[in-house]
């Protein structure tokens, strides 16, 4: 998960992209589906092409949303009792324009959120994000939790496979009827949890020896800096969002 990334967007300061992420999600909440589907989705697609991550981005984007979007449209079309224009009719299946618009509105916020979050992590190393947050005085404990979790997950997945094989060798059935499979759950997970917890104290001592709780300023192995383009972009995103929201409120009131 922490491999090096290339491309123009990866050179931006992580917090600049984080500002963009939050602005996009807030705007998606304020505006209707046209902002999401006609502005943000094409924009993130373009940015993904621009930074050279398009295929990997598209794969994750579709993987994260396909099932969800299909079901939302299914629900909205089934629940739609309006008398708007009928687009498609076959026996008892009736698709009306209102059902489709409801579906677009319902999915827009999540589609925008998924698009910007996926693009963010396509172009940002989690390590860099944590360093930039720490430069803005966020506690080093946050960095430790996030980065250590990212190492811990693949490590524990590997160990759980070893434990499951060991338990199978001892005669615990992991296939068969549901009762057998349920009985295999605890012997698979229990030893993993207890062994991880037993190792905790050693980890705590290792960390303390390295000055984890010491109340001094922490240093970084890797230095990343924000450039003037980052400040201009961040300010631009915020101003643009405030202006758009102001305009939306103005239209809504008058």
């Amino acid at each position: 998960m922490l491999e090096r990334r290339k491309g123009p967007l990866s050179k931006l300061y992580p917090l600049t992209k984080l500002v963009f992420l939050f602005c996009a999600v807030i705007l998606a909440i304020v505006f209707d589906w046209r902002f999401g589907y006609l502005v943000m989705v094409p924009l993130t697609m373009f940015l993904a092409v621009f930074s050279g991550n398009f295929l990997s981005f598209l794969k994750k984007f579709i993987g994260a949303l396909l099932l969800f979007v299909i079901f939302v449209f299914l629900f909205k079309i089934m629940l739609d009792k309006s008398d708007s224009q009928i687009l498609f009719q076959w026996q008892f299946i009736v698709i009306r324009i209102q059902g489709l618009i409801d579906g677009l509105n319902q999915t827009s916020v999540l589609v925008v959120m998924a698009a910007v979050v996926l693009l963010f992590f396509e172009t940002t190393e989690v390590e860099d994000l944590m360093i930039s947050l720490q430069q803005k005085k966020v506690s080093h404990v946050v960095s430790y939790i996030v980065l250590s979790t990212l190492q811990m997950i693949p490590d524990m997945v590997k160990r759980s496979k070893v434990i499951m094989q060991a338990q199978q060798a001892r005669g615990i059935e992991t296939e068969g009827n549901i009762y057998l499979r349920m009985r295999a759950f605890f012997p698979s997970l229990g030893p993993l949890i207890i062994s991880s917890i037993s190792e905790l104290e050693e980890r705590a001592i290792t960390l303390e020896v390295r000055g984890f709780s010491a109340s001094v300023e922490k240093t970084f192995l890797k230095d990343i800096q924000s450039r003037s383009i980052d400040r201009i972009l961040s300010l631009g995103f915020v101003l643009l969002s405030v202006a758009l929201i102001g305009w939306r409120i103005y239209v809504w009131l008058f």
Partner: peptide, 25 residues
């Protein structure tokens, strides 16, 4: 608190691995 902080990444990994084992079984 160091022990408690160290417990958090393990808890998160357990959340994930528990779900995975349920899937495998």
């Amino acid at each position: 608190s160091t022990m408690a902080i160290l417990l958090i990444p393990i808890g998160i990994a357990i959340n994930y691995v528990g779900g995975q084992i349920a899937l495998i079984l």
